[in-house]
């Protein structure tokens, strides 16, 4: 259970991380008001994940925390790679057309 929660929190954290650099990842830029929230979430989610994972056993918890971070990174990277993209990494609009 703690693995799932930690993984989910890390996915949220790394998604925020990507969204805070929209040009680099070809994402639509977040509204100016959203940026502090994204910053906060990026900071808070790993702390929450650490609390959840180290609740019963510190050593195993830290291992789970680190490994779910890595795994979540892969999940987010694949999501960004295969998901819809609005802006190219060079900053130009490249809205994908889905062909039948």
């Amino acid at each position: 259970m703690s693995i799932t929660v930690s993984l989910l929190l890390w996915v949220i954290c790394l998604s925020c991380h990507a969204w805070l650099q929209p040009g680099r990842y070809g994402l639509p830029p977040p509204r100016p008001g959203y940026r502090p929230a994204l910053w906060g979430t990026r900071l808070l989610a790993p702390v929450l994940a650490l609390l959840v994972t180290t609740r019963h056993d510190a050593i195993a918890g830290i291992l789970v925390w680190c490994m779910t971070a890595s795994l979540a990174g892969l999940v987010v990277a694949c999501g960004l790679c295969f998901g819809p993209r609005i802006i190219g990494t060079d900053g130009r609009r490249v809205a994908r057309e889905r062909r039948p």
């Binding site: 790394l14 991380h17 650099q21 990842y25 694949c78 790679c81």
Partner: peptide
């Protein structure tokens, strides 16, 4: 850190 989740195929 900036390229932490960068994958381009």
């Amino acid at each position: 850190l900036p390229d932490l989740v960068m994958l381009r195929l």
